[in-house]
Design a protein around this nucleic acid. Structure first.
Lengths: 130, 130
DNA sequence: CAGTATCCGCCATGATACTG
DNA sequence: CAGTATCATGGCGGATACTG
């Protein structure tokens, strides 16, 4: 990875340099790389899904965090929420074109981690980082 | 992204399926996608750096979090720590080959977010996700 | 079904002080 | 310079109850 890339970003505050503490990209990056954000995006990258499907598919996520994560990603413009307006309700979530771009970068990363967990020193040794 | 990929993982508990709540990949994924982990990895992807350099380069990170993040990533086998053993101390951090693989996936993601912050719906609207 | 509202614990995070 | 130790806190995240 050439240094010039980052240095260009560093020199140009108008674009988003995540290394700057006041950069808005930090916020988006936090959404994207949040504990659940990455899994929600990866799940939706496979196919559009309904609320309940997501809830079941992403094991361990609470209703609160699913709602919160979805709203954050929707707010970022990565996720599209479509309510059927029927009763009982039916709501479908999918990736926006922007979200698709992001997911195309994110999914390989998630896959790599999943595939290479065994090669990491730990996961045992990692019980806690503190 | 083909569904079959994920489904294969789903069907094979031996590999790491991040959608499973008990999967070790969740832990590593949390390290990698942690607030500071992603920035540390991206910073080291540019070039090896000393402690102080990292501290200054990654704006806003506290000493504690830098140390903690570095130790977590070192424990995962992504980061190599080399102490010169001199006094005053000099410690260099760099990516391991495994870390390099990971960074090659991670850096494009970070760059994309940085480059596309302006296209996201918000960063203004995102003040808080709660 | 698809959420929202509320309460709450705990840990991640941060600030400060100290050290080899 | 390169950390560690300690303390304080806030907000992330979970559980539960409730609703249209």
């Amino acid at each position: 990875m050439s240094d010039s890339i980052w240095q260009a970003i560093h020199a140009e505050p108008a674009s988003g340099n995540p290394f700057s503490s006041n950069c808005p990209s930090r916020v988006v990056l936090d959404h994207v790389t949040s504990k659940w954000g990455v899994l929600v995006l990866a799940a939706l990258a496979e196919s559009p899904r309904r609320w309940g499907e997501l809830h079941r598919y992403i094991e361990g996520i609470s209703e609160k965090m699913l709602a919160q994560t979805l709203r954050a990603l929707e707010g970022d413009g990565f996720v599209l929420r479509e309510s059927a307006g029927t009763v009982p309700p039916r709501v479908d979530y999918s990736l926006t074109p922007l979200g698709r771009e992001l997911a195309d970068l994110l999914v390989p990363l998630v896959r790599w981690v999943g595939d290479n967990v065994g090669r990491t020193a730990g996961a045992e040794a990692l019980g806690r980082t503190a």
